[in-house]
Write a protein that binds this DNA or RNA. Sequence first.
RNA 1: GCCCUCGUAGUCUAAUGGUCAGGACACGGCCCUUUCAAGGCUGCGAUAGGAGUCCGAUUCUCCUCGAGGGCACCA
Length: 484
Amino acid sequence: MEVAMVRVRYAPSPTGHIHVGNARTAIFNYLYARHEGGTFIMRLDDTDLERSTEENIDSMLADIRWLGLDWDEGFLKGGTLGPYRETERKPLYDAYIQQLLDEDKAYRCFCTKDELEAERGKAEAEHRIYRYGGACAHLSAEQVAKNVAEGKPYAIRLRIPQEDVVVHDLIRGDVQFKTEEFDDFVIARQNGIPIYNFATVIDDALMHITHIIRAEEHLSNTPRQIFIYRALSFEVPQFAHVSLILAPDHSKLSKRHGAVSVGEYRLEGYLPEALINYLVLLGWSPKDDREFFTVDELVTEFSLEGVGKSGAVFDKKKLTWMNHMYLGRKDAADILTILKEDFAEQYAATFGGLREDKTLAAIDLTKGNAQVLPDLFRLARNIVQLDVVITDEKSQEVINSPEAKQVLQYLLEHFDAIPFGQGDDAMSSWVEDLRNQIPLPAKKLYSPIRVALFGSKDGPQIVKLFLMLEPSSIRERLQKALAL
RNA sequence: GCCCUCGUAGUCUAAUGGUCAGGACACGGCCCUUUCAAGGCUGCGAUAGGAGUCCGAUUCUCCUCGAGGGCACCA
């Protein structure tokens, strides 16, 4: 027997940049597909014409590409089961709606909005659960024909069988729903456009999606979707509902909580590998203590069994910490490429016109102290620019101290003794030996030097600064600092 | 209101019907180091509450509470 190939999809509504919650869903789908050797499909749920602009589609795709989630089939990629935009699939929806009508599994509902509202209001007043009363459920063929002939507008409702439904969820187990919770719901509006639950089922079924991995908010709608699968004799796929990502106050993550989209994190200077790593850990865990994973490692390790059930609060501090770790380990050359592309303006302002090896060295020297990419401009500027800007008050105090004068004075007087060009070891021992030359505690001795050369009492090792900077530049910096 | 889901420290999480409930972020201390970061050690800190089953429950059952989601001719 042939094992069915895993096919999963990511079906965003292109309304702009991708929300981190959506991004995590995309990542889970991607990882599952890759882990199973399956197919990852990209479909556009672009029926919201107002918001689904080309511009929004572009920024959404930019986010996906930035994360590195390449898809095998679908929008812009093609495939045999397209089209892959919902707006181009209307004829398919129409055909299946017609089929349901022909088989009397669905019917035309001529009720007006007012009538339905009255019905709903009455139910509420009587404290009953509102369900569609079924006024149009059993109209005679003649009556229907007459209404249609008269041009009465109608929606299409699906007949719901009197049976309980169980959703077999790969993350949550069996979830039971009672038949009385459902009424004959609308699958196509008066204007003929199908509602989301219908379109998505047709799309998923026709594209032979085997596993639907999506956010928990869809769990309650899954029974309705299952009714549609059954009515059309489609095979019901496997479901996996992932819990939501929450704001620190446990509310929905929104703009008022700061950055919420992938695009914003990119602009703030986060690395895609750090974002992915962090996002994956929100809801998924290996069964051990490991926390750092490359995408390749995630592909081998990922499983739906490892996905948790409870909602997760988005903790930017931990993301930032993780980004910091990734930055410290990343090649300076790779960092430089990103700075040039994503932070062109700041790059030009800080490193413009500079020899690239100088820039690389400065980045290499300071990347371990950066939390997000733009930090590098602040940190590296004092290395590559002629004038040193003192970064904070504490550092200012250090350079103003009498000990600082003493140290800087000494260095200038013995400038010729500094072993420039004689290698790391020589410089190292010279820096070491300073402690014998100047009778000061290490802290008092070294921090003024760092402030003079780097603008901050914290940062690179003194030895590295002496090795990295031009001797003439060092002399100048010492003089300037002394003159302060 | 009805339905569904979830509930381990401030946050992300691991584990177990029976060892000190483990790791990470954050926070505090110590070590290392010329500083910060990194690294090492360490401290603070959790099984929402109540019943029940059991020799024993954080784990199984029920109730309560809390949080989130869904109930549309939105997606």
